[in-house]
């Protein structure tokens, strides 16, 4: 569950939120769309607790996992280690890396992987973390259509009993994930 009441947030004189409300249940897949600079990523950061400078109330139940807009992988760890580090389960790590099509690249470091491959590691890491809510901030950037479809299938499968909040410019991605659009 995510509950936001009367959210107010501004950067200098630029008002991002002025009394924004949002209420999402414990399960389901939701989608936020808006132009660049409208505050989508800021909203994700506020929900996740990374940004605490705001007015209003923001509540959520359970643990949050996050696919950031950037990959944010640890450069000194391999793909396997980056995922393993958040769950400490070998089987789960190998399964997720296999599902995102990286079973042959698990021992490679982020610098040895392409942008799309690193994106898949970041997605696998977010899915590996024990969570109740999944925040997806432009998660499918740099992914080929085929891979994007298989990752979407994986997310639908693993997150069916959880709450997923997607931020994306591409409406077709939201449709493929079966998202309900949230007024923003």
């Amino acid at each position: 569950m995510i509950k936001i009441k009367n959210l107010k947030k501004s950067f200098d004189k630029n008002v991002i939120f002025n009394g924004f409300d949002l209420c999402l249940p414990d399960t389901g897949t939701y989608y936020i769309n808006g132009p660049s600079g409208s505050g989508k990523t800021t909203l994700m950061r506020i929900i996740s607790g990374l940004d605490t400078e705001y007015e209003g109330t923001v509540e959520h139940s359970g643990k949050i996992s996050y696919v950031f807009q950037e990959n944010r992988l640890i450069p000194s760890l391999t793909a396997y280690e980056n995922v393993f580090e958040v769950c400490h389960k070998k089987e789960k790590t190998l399964y997720l890396l296999k599902e995102v099509g990286l079973e042959n690249d698990i021992d490679k470091y982020p610098a040895e992987l392409s942008g799309g491959m690193n994106r898949r590691v970041a997605i696998a890491r977010a899915l590996a973390y024990d969570h109740d809510i999944l925040l997806l901030d432009e998660p499918f950037t740099a992914l080929d259509d085929d891979i994007k479809n298989s990752v979407i299938k994986l997310i639908k499968e693993t997150e069916k009993d959880r709450l997923v909040l997607l931020v994306s410019h591409d409406e077709s991605e939201a449709e493929a994930l079966g998202c309900i659009s949230v007024p923003f």
Partner: peptide, 15 residues
């Protein structure tokens, strides 16, 4: 030293 993981092993679905 790079840790070696059994890449050939096909894990069961656990998620």
């Amino acid at each position: 030293k790079k840790k070696r993981y059994d890449q050939n092993k096909k894990p069961e679905k656990v998620v």
